[in-house]
């Protein structure tokens, strides 16, 4: 399991060549090709075929590639999985996950398909979409059930529908769920990716919601419009000050270790192990990689 830099995931409907071709230019950390909700039932076959050809022949400038397949309960899910795994995307997003049994089954299936395609078993990661109340309750079991599972994400529309409640701009109705997703993801050191902010003309609203997500512990957010990418990236990137602080913590910690000193304090705050690890993570993520902004 890892904790990759996945600040923004840009949804791209997989049936639109113009959008597919330009997907990588907007600076999203992950391109999320969608075969599910943005594709009409009558176009599922066309989208799948187009995505296969695109992933086989286009160069996305080393941007991480994710594919959202249809639910395995639908008649398209299995076909999606069988045709997408052999192309070897980095991560597959699977909708409507509510039990660990689903993940175990999918994991096995992917392993089988990877072998068949001469891919290293375990190569493809999965991202579970939590979209039902039951899924929220089973979160920990779900995450613990597969080594492949490297990100959790929230499907807010379906979840509120499942609960029979409305989405509000304040988002209180999703507070518990968001917190729980972030908590479980943190515990298992995987990504927590927040749901989309659908009014793409309201950039202030997006910024507000993204800041809240970050406060709760999310590591990234799905976006539906290129103009949302910069804001989301910015929010999830630590400030220069935070990075400098992290460097200072790590520097002092290694000195302390050298001189056998137990407890250290930076800027008047005591540094314990979790804080040190967090500092290392920040440096790892944002110092070594060239992050824009």
């Amino acid at each position: 399991m890892n904790n990759k830099l996945r600040r923004s995931m840009l949804y791209i409907p997989a049936n639109n060549p113009a959008m597919i071709q330009d997907a990588f230019i907007y600076g999203a950390d992950t391109i999320l090709f969608d075969l599910e909700d943005s594709i009409a039932i009558s176009e599922k076959d066309a989208a799948r075929e187009l995505l296969i050809e695109a992933l086989n022949s286009l160069n996305f400038n080393n941007t991480e590639i994710a594919v959202r397949i249809n639910s395995l309960d639908s008649k398209f899910g299995l076909k999606d999985l069988k045709s997408i795994v052999p192309i070897g995307p980095d991560i597959i997003r699977i909708p409507k996950i509510e039990t660990k049994e689903q993940i175990i089954k999918i994991d096995k299936l992917i392993t089988k398909l990877e072998r068949k395609a001469n891919l290293q078993p375990g190569f493809i990661e999965i991202m579970a979409m939590i979209e039902t109340a039951k899924g929220v309750l089973n979160l920990e079991k779900i995450v613990a059930s597969s080594e492949r599972l490297s990100a959790l994400t929230l499907g807010a529309e379906d979840l509120t529908t499942d609960m029979g409640i409305k989405r509000t701009s304040l988002g209180r109705e999703l507070f518990l769920t968001r917190s729980k997703i972030a908590l479980v993801a943190a515990a298992y050191k995987i990504n927590a990716i927040d749901t989309v902010f659908s009014d793409f003309n309201d950039l202030n609203g997006l910024k507000k919601e993204t800041l809240q997500s970050k406060e709760l512990g999310f590591t990234g957010k799905a976006v539906i419009h290129p103009r949302q990418v910069d804001i989301v990236n910015h929010v999830f990137t630590p400030s220069q000050e935070e990075i400098e602080d992290a460097k200072e913590i790590v520097r002092q910690a290694s000195q302390a270790e050298e001189f056998g000193k137990g407890v250290i304090a930076v800027k008047g705050k005591m540094v314990d192990l979790p804080i040190l690890n967090r500092a290392k993570e920040i440096i790892n993520k944002y110092e070594k990689r060239e992050v824009i902004k």
Binding site: P17, E53, A54, N56, S57
Partner: peptide, 17 residues
């Protein structure tokens, strides 16, 4: 103005249909 991959995919889907 489709690229080759799109031409291939569209042709294939039309035939399959």
């Amino acid at each position: 103005g489709a690229l080759d991959y799109a031409i291939r995919a569209r042709t294939k889907t039309a035939i399959l249909r």
